[in-house]
């Protein structure tokens, strides 16, 4: 076991993938000499060279578009989008090209491209540096969408994502980059499309992914002091969704709260609520409730503590679920 930050765990995962497969490339803005603005690619260019760790021009559509071309030539590019809000210039390439080519070719083409996106708020940043755009991508057939929440998962999930033959949008919770935990560098992680019980519990299920897993675990720890036994599920994969684990948990606890930073309205939680209602209807003691961002643009940083779901808002919603 080694103690690593999430950023370092991802770095180690990338390094191992590059060692294992010479076709793996890293590309993006400032990923080379600088090692990325969050240092996730630190030292990779020094060890693997400029042909494999590519500092690109500052154009996100260009990053994804050329990664597609490299993938067509047999490479496995891992693209870094510097911040969540900067992915939008690349959205055309992601949605109309990356996601659609396997179908367009009737399966002749595979596009093993990983698009890493540091996501979410909580770091006091300016506009476009704190967003949670996952629903745009989960709504797009042809993409797989995952979100890691902790160093051990970061280490294994990035390697799984690189090995996969489908395009993957890989969300990394940027405010958790510096959180440390134990990582077994010899372990093989869970399959990429499986959820994980982050904390077992009997009274209510919290569903979260990425940055909100930690918030939910803190909420569960606080609730335990009041004698409430909360189960926290880290979804890990948003598309596909490990509905089996979700349904099993909610049927057992009878209550469910979904937590994400993205706006609640037509957010990922809406899909979860609808599916749980359909599949667990006779087991539910209360409606599925959601905690998340408001129907506003992401606020200036002096307001983000009011916008982001925190321990109190999560527990308030848990209370509401029990009040039914």
């Amino acid at each position: 076991m080694t103690t690593l930050t999430l950023a370092k765990a991802l770095n180690e995962g990338l390094r191992r993938s590059m060692e294992d497969d010479s076709k793996v490339l890293v590309m993006g803005e400032d990923v080379g000499k600088l090692g990325g603005v969050f240092r996730v690619t630190d030292g990779l260019q020094k060890d693997f060279g400029e042909d494999r760790v590519i500092d690109t021009p500052l154009a996100e559509s260009g990053i994804i578009g050329t990664a597609i071309g490299l993938a067509l030539r047999g490479y496995r590019p891992v693209c870094e989008i510097q911040f969540d809000g900067f992915v939008f210039p690349a959205v055309n390439q992601i949605i109309t090209q990356l996601a659609k080519m396997p179908l367009r070719s009737l399966g002749a083409l595979k596009l093993p491209v990983v698009v890493r996106i540091p996501c979410g708020g909580g770091i006091g940043a300016v506009e476009h540096h704190s967003e949670s755009p996952e629903a745009y991508f989960t709504h797009t057939a042809g993409l797989r969408v995952v979100a890691c929440s902790n160093p051990a998962d970061g280490y294994s999930m990035i390697q799984e994502a690189i090995r996969a033959d489908d395009p993957i949008i890989f969300f990394e919770p940027k405010r958790r980059y510096w959180d440390k935990s134990e990582v077994d560098l010899t372990a093989t992680g869970l399959p990429l499309d499986q959820a994980r019980v982050a904390r077992p519990g009997a009274d209510i299920t919290l569903l979260a992914y990425g940055p909100m897993v930690k918030t939910c675990l803190e909420a569960a720890a606080a609730a335990a002091e009041d004698g409430r036994d909360i189960e926290v599920i880290d979804l890990r994969s948003l598309n596909p969704l490990d509905m089996g684990m979700v349904a099993e948990s909610v049927k057992r606890t009878g209550r469910c709260v979904v937590v994400h930073e993205a706006p609640v309205f037509t957010g990922y939680g809406a899909e979860l609520a609808a599916r749980i209602t359909e599949q667990c209807f006779y087991h539910l003691e209360s409606p599925v409730l959601r905690v998340g961002g408001f129907s506003t643009p992401y606020p200036p940083s002096r307001l983000e503590e009011y916008y982001l779901p925190d321990l109190d808002r999560v527990l308030d919603t848990v209370d509401r679920a029990f009040a039914y």
């Binding site: 578009g65 050329t66 597609i68 071309g69 490299l70 030539r73 109309t96 070719s105």
Partner: peptide, 29 residues
């Protein structure tokens, strides 16, 4: 529905201009 690798002729691209980046990426490969 054709295999681009069989003909070294990529699929038709309908969104205007998107394929130019694919050509450059492929050339980098």
């Amino acid at each position: 529905g054709w295999d681009p690798a069989e003909h070294n002729f990529h699929l038709y691209t309908i969104v205007i201009g998107s394929q130019t980046l694919h050509a450059v990426g492929y050339a980098m490969g």
